[in-house]
Structure formats: structure tokens, C-alpha cells
Design a protein around this nucleic acid. Structure first.
Length: 396
DNA sequence: AACGTGCTCAACCGCCGAGAT
DNA sequence: AATCTCGGCGGTTGAGCACGT
């Protein structure tokens, strides 16, 4: 049942930090650094705190150049796009937003953005502790470790479910705008530009100036602050097809490297690739591309809807063009660009993301692009279990 | 004014992976 | 190779505040 706690809980103070404790911790770290040992640090300063607590306090609150509150539209957009792409990898998302902590982003997502995008109320305390069916459905996956019945539904994490919802909402928006008349044949829909479903919003580069992290921080203060290196070749400069191919190739490699016995069966991949060399070259520079899952899911043939289109769509959705519940103003039609995601831990993060992707794209992405419809085909378990959860979010 | 409910966010918990021994 | 220690991460909790009735 896990390893022993890192400190003696009986002699360790918990709860909110006092200004005095903050001052002690800040002064010490600014002068000496952490010494590479958070556990020993509180004893050196004379704080009755757990080392992990000190680390958290420093990283989330005391560290220089931390921003709190007031997320900009651009930041919201980045968070949403990355969440759709990689799920709840808050540290990776935080690495794209200088000055923001993973904790802040996580809180912001859970309390505001999720509701704005999904139109879903956060489960009440009562619902969480009792038997609220919606909450149980949503939380089934994350709390199912003790269950021996590893159903497909349970294998989907709560964040994956939310991402399905987000995608479906965008799908619905798209369908309402672009798809006149229903389409019961999903394969036909994929082959038709007129009925093509949207691809994932593309991540593009923020200006480099906006990406650089403060260089004045002590090295150990950057423990979870990942340096974002200038990137010589932005996705935005890469031919779209190259990006698709590269991302698909990378996903292919990662999935194959996951070895045999994977939980999910891979869907058949049939994506456009100009050439293997180009794809390989692009793959070397593209750490992650949110288009990849859609490629894996079989959408790559869709034509006529460039990444900017869906990027705009997400933005418009987020900022009320389509009457989302958020209601934030969208001034002047300017759409901020999104960052090319640079994973601090590189391949591992990508692999993890793709595992999630393969999970739900394979299981649930074979749904039709019918206008206004949110059908899920090909996996009745996922479809039925999602039904209430998904539809419950509409109409707000 | 009093009460109940919902929201926010700082902090905690427990697991995992990496590195050291 | 096995075990231990630590940093890091994502999920969850709960105190305090805001708001509605």
C-alpha cells in the first residue's frame, strides 16, 4: 500500500502557511536554494513542515514570477486545446504557460473552463460522497482501481470522457454550421468534404518572447518549471500534410512501442503521407501534434478544413460565438495562436497522451458526423454509458 | 439576518519513476 | 537485482467566501 510517508505526520504542521513561514522559506531558498533536498530543508530552516509541503508552497506560491488568477483568453484557449489533446497533463500544460502553475491550471479547469465548455455543473459535495449517478458515471474510470471488472467504460479516464464531450460539442457546432441534413453513413461522411468532421484544433506557436521563462530563477526553483526552448521550425511553417503524417507516424511508433497486449486494439490507419522521408523528418521536430489522434481515428482523409478553421472554431466556441455558456467577449475577431506543444519530458508524455488517445479514439471515435447528432457508433458500452453524461451537459 | 448551497483555491494524499545505495 | 529515498505529478479535500432564498 505505497511506501512510508516522507515525514513524521505527528510532528508536522499542516494547513495554511503563515506569513512567517512563507518568509522563512522564501528567504532561505532565495539565498541558498533548496540544496537539492526538500526533505531536509524544513529542518534546516526550523519549519515544522513536510518537505513536500515546502516544495509545493514554493513552487505554487512563493516562487518568483508566479501569476495568479485572471487567465487571459489566450491562456484559456491554450488550456482547452491542450486538454483536448493530452488530457489532464497539467504539468505539461503549465509548461506552455509561463508563470502559471499546474495547480492553478488544474483548479481553473475544474472550476471554470470545464463548466464553460461542457456546460456541466461540478458535482456537488453531496453528489460526490453519495450516489449521484452522473457523478458515478463520470468518475467510474478513475475510481475503479478496486474493481475487478475492467470494462471499456472504466478504462476511459474521466478526463478522456470530458475530452470526448468537448470534441462532440465541437462536432455538434460544426455539424450545425456545415452539415446540412443528417448523414447516417459515417464512412461516407469521412470521405466527403461537405460532411467532413472537424479535425482537432491545431497547436501553433506563440511568439517566442511570450514563451521564455524567467532566467533569474535558481536552478532548483525550476524543478517543475520546464524550460521552453526556442523552436526552429514551428508547426505553422510546416506543410499541413507533413504535420499530419509526422504525427501519425509518431503515434504509430509509440503505439507499436507500447508492445503487445495493449488494452485497445488499434484502428486501421490510412493517412495521407507525402513521403516517408518527409514524415520522418517532420516527426523529428514535431514533439506533439493534436491532429494525430484524429489521424489515428481515421479522419485524416477529411479535406477542406484546415487547422486554422478548427482553431477558430474552438476559439469562437469558447468565446460565445455559438452561444456557449461562457459569454466572454471576443474582441475584434483576433484569435490568438496556440503554442506548439513542447513536452518537458518528451516522448514519455507523448506516449502517455497517445495511450489515452488510442483509448478513446479507437473506442469511441467511430461516430457519425451527422448534423447536430452526437451518435456514437461501434462501441455500445461507451455510447450508452456516455449518453446521459454527454447529453446532460447540453442546453445550458 | 440567518441559513443553506455553491464556488474557489491552497494544500494534502498517495502513487509512480528515477536515481542512489 | 533488490531496496530505499526523493521529487514530481494528478486527484481530491476542506476552509473560507460568495451568493441566493
Amino acid at each position: 500500500m505505497g511506501r512510508a510517508p516522507c515525514c513524521d505526520k505527528a510532528s508536522v504542521k499542516k494547513g495554511p502557511w503563515s506569513p512567517d513561514e512563507d518568509a522563512k522559506l522564501k528567504a532561505y531558498i532565495e539565498e541558498h536554494g533548496t540544496g537539492g533536498n526538500w526533505i531536509a530543508l524544513p529542518h534546516k530552516i526550523g519549519l515544522k513542515r513536510c518537505g513536500k509541503s515546502c516544495r509545493l508552497r514554493w513552487l505554487n506560491y512563493l516562487r518568483p514570477n508566479i501569476k495568479h488568477g485572471d487567465f487571459t483568453e489566450e491562456e484559456e484557449h491554450i488550456i482547452c486545446s491542450l486538454y483536448i489533446s493530452i488530457g489532464s497533463r497539467w504539468s505539461i500544460i503549465a509548461a506552455q504557460l509561463p508563470g502559471r502553475t499546474d495547480n492553478d491550471i488544474k483548479n481553473y479547469w475544474n472550476t471554470k473552463l470545464k463548466k464553460k465548455l461542457l456546460g456541466k455543473r461540478a458535482p456537488s459535495r453531496r453528489a460526490r460522497t453519495n450516489q449521484d449517478p452522473c457523478y458515478l458515471a463520470a468518475g467510474a474510470a478513475s475510481s475503479s482501481s478496486s474493481s475487478s471488472a475492467a470494462t471499456a467504460t472504466q478504462a476511459l479516464s474521466a478526463s478522456a470522457l470530458e475530452r470526448i464531450q468537448l470534441h462532440m460539442r465541437l462536432q455538434g457546432i460544426y455539424g450545425a454550421l456545415a452539415c446540412s441534413g443528417g448523414n447516417d453513413d459515417s464512412n461516407a461522411a469521412f470521405g466527403s468534404a461537405a460532411a467532413a468532421p472537424p479535425q482537432w484544433p491545431k497547436l501553433e506557436a506563440l511568439s517566442q518572447a511570450n514563451r521564455l521563462l524567467p532566467g533569474s530563477l535558481p536552478a532548483d526553483a525550476m524543478a517543475t518549471t520546464v524550460s521552453v526552448q526556442p523552436h526552429p521550425q514551428h508547426l505553422v511553417e510546416v506543410d499541413h500534410h507533413q504535420s499530419l503524417a509526422a504525427a501519425a507516424l509518431e503515434g504509430e511508433q509509440q503505439l507499436s512501442s507500447a508492445g503487445e497486449g495493449g488494452f485497445f486494439e488499434r484502428p486501421k490507419v490510412d493517412f495521407y503521407s507525402p513521403s516517408a522521408e518527409v514524415a520522418a523528418a517532420a516527426a523529428a521536430s514535431v514533439e506533439m501534434n493534436s491532429v494525430a489522434p484524429m489521424v489515428v481515428g481515421g479522419y485524416a482523409g477529411a479535406a477542406g478544413f484546415g487547422p486554422q478553421h478548427h482553431h477558430d472554431e474552438l476559439y469562437d466556441f469558447l468565446y460565445s460565438k455559438y452561444g456557449s455558456v461562457g459569454g466572454l467577449a471576443h474582441d475584434g475577431g483576433h484569435v490568438p495562436t496556440l503554442p506548439e506543444l513542447q513536452c518537458p519530458d518528451g516522448a514519455a508524455a507523448v506516449v502517455g497522451a497517445d495511450e489515452k488517445f488510442s483509448a478513446w479514439t479507437a473506442a469511441a471515435c467511430d461516430y457519425g458526423a451527422a448534423a447536430g447528432g452526437h451518435q456514437i457508433q461501434g462501441n455500445s458500452i461507451v455510447g450508452s454509458s456516455l449518453h446521459d453524461y454527454v447529453l446532460g451537459g447540453y442546453g445550458q
